[in-house]
Design a protein around this nucleic acid. Structure first.
Lengths: 343, 343
DNA sequence: CTGAAAGCGCTTACAG
DNA sequence: CTGAAAGCGCTTACAG
């Protein structure tokens, strides 16, 4: 029923091996032969059977994208994830790789599935997002021998066995905080992501370092963590308003930031008049009311380089972890300077 | 290197066919034999090679999720898409199917790729989101013979050849609009999705029917369309404020709704005091300031049933399109009744 | 209930 | 530059 390479070979009057060589652009096929084969393939509307090709070559030309958090909160950082996937896609497409989504409810779920996915050879390698301190599924993964790249720093970065792509999250948080400190703010609320994610530790560190640089003591009540959602951003700030005072808030996730803004509004806090705000960049930030100052962490680049590293790994080429630069974009939400007296 | 079924068979002291039968839980294997085989597999840490299995069985146990809009705006409806995928996953997991993501920049791009994806047999079938009036890729898809299910109604619904899952979008918009009309509103802004999507037509229809039911003439200036993003929701309402008057807005996408709310705020319009607002449901809607009245369109169900229909198709079981019910959830954003005088 | 054999549709040394 | 043959690791009639 389906047209196979045998049909093509027959019609072109060549052997199957020659047909294969021609279709795969092997250099040693004569131009005339190649033309005949290609013509035959076209006429028969032939397309290689991937299942057979995969088995013969021992590769699937698929990479798995593991999202150990999807079903809870992933897409909440909509712009970020969107760009991340664009980047991954941008790198895979030219190499004819496609993307298999492995979304799971939680890490335990992932660990259970990983055995089948990895040992079953349904993909050639993995890109893993949302690295945590646990990553319990990693043991199974490594045992399977499949290569993988982490987006975000893995817990044992120092061991340097693991390939990853990340921002310098210490510096990201440092820059955001220092920017506010430089504008006179002294009481800065820091809404961090959940501490199970490795980046939350780094950002915490950056926040503290910035305060230290400016000689400002840390008030632990100003360090809070929230899930990466509108709802949780709203929740923590709603609970805090009235309890503690602050003149600025750093919330490095757009969805959390939206929630935070709504909580501030509910409590009658205007931005930037009463509170300055800074987040990570996305289209939304530009159009918020007021537009939000933001750190651009380049999600497209994160995705693109993660995929590139994985493809290099698969091709046996040398490769290395990569830090993606970030940049602060100034907008109205931090326009107000704080007078010396009010510090 | 990798352990194959031959190794398992050898260790269990049976033939390869018996090992296969035992591993696949065929009923005709004796309990003792099965136990020996399973034990051997466990000891050797054997996992079936999917590539070989796929080729032998002629199926990939993968379904493709086609998102002809991902790279522009998909995740903007974050909660919606999140739930949709959960639903798809929920149906696929028990059947051991996994999900391949086919995201493309646009429909032309998709058409070009579809040839390889569909004819290459890298998946057993497709779930397609964001149906438009064009769906140019569908011709190639149908020619390949692979089954597919559309989430949202396909353009030729009446032809009834195409399987799909959808809300009754005429009724969704009707209910939202009629709800506001019943509360006294007469000038109702309707922010629709892009007209290239089939659902936008249906919702437009529902809006008009509701006005007609209440004997309210349609003011075409109150019918606008926007991309499914915060930015575009903001843009259209920002442009409209001051140009036209309205006492309520229907915007059936959470991200657009956020943008609309920010535009209203910029122009000093309070919700619900100056303008009532109604959207589609998501966690956010509950926590907005004020909480938004919303139509729950049950995205999990949409995804779950789309996958279920596709799996039934693949299993050769009878199946049929399905309409998912919706429900209106009342919250503070539409609390205010409009006095007869202000109509 | 079990085993020997063919076949899924490719790719890839290898020989010529 | 081309062809005959083996092999990728399974599943599935088929015979016993």
């Amino acid at each position: 029923m389906a047209v196979t390479i045998r049909d093509v070979a027959r019609r072109a009057g060549v052997s199957v091996s020659t047909a294969s060589a021609a279709l795969n652009n092997k250099p040693f096929v004569s131009p005339q032969t190649r033309a005949r084969v290609l013509q035959a393939a076209l006429e028969l509307n032939y397309h290689v059977n991937r299942m057979a090709r995969n088995l013969a070559m021992g590769r699937t030309f698929q990479i798995g994208l593991l999202i150990p958090a999807l079903l809870e909160h992933t897409f909440s950082a909509s712009h970020f994830f969107n760009q991340l996937m664009r980047g991954i896609y941008g790198a895979c497409r030219p190499e004819d790789y496609s993307l298999v989504l492995f979304a799971v409810e939680n890490e335990d779920d992932l660990t259970r599935q990983m055995t089948h996915w990895a040992h079953g050879r349904s993909v050639d390698g993995f890109i893993i997002t949302h690295p945590t301190w646990e990553m319990p599924y990693r043991e199974v993964l490594e045992q399977s021998g499949l290569p993988y790249v982490v987006i975000g720093r893995p817990p044992d970065k120092d061991a340097s066995r693991v390939l990853f792509v990340d921002n310098d999250n210490v510096q990201v948080a440092y820059d955001a905080t220092a920017y506010l400190l430089a504008r006179g703010h002294r009481r800065i609320l820091f809404v961090n992501g959940p501490s199970r994610y490795t980046y939350a530790h780094d950002r915490n560190e950056g926040y503290r370092r910035a305060l230290h640089t400016y000689g400002v003591p840390v008030d632990e009540r100003l360090l809070v963590e929230a899930e990466l959602t509108f709802v949780d951003g709203y929740r923590v700030v709603d609970a805090l308003c009235g309890q503690v005072t602050f003149s600025a808030v750093v919330v490095l996730n757009p969805m959390q930031a939206l929630g935070v803004m709504h909580a501030l509004a509910k409590h009658g806090c205007r931005v930037p008049e009463d509170v300055a705000a800074i987040t990570t960049d996305c289209e939304m930030a530009k159009y918020m009311h007021p537009p939000l100052t933001a750190v651009d962490i380049q999600p497209y680049q994160l995705g693109y380089h993660a995929a590139t590293i994985l493809l290099q790994l698969l091709a046996g080429e040398p490769t290395a972890p990569r830090i993606i630069p970030h940049a602060l974009v100034e907008r109205a939400s931090t326009r107000r300077m704080v007078a010396q007296a009010h510090r």
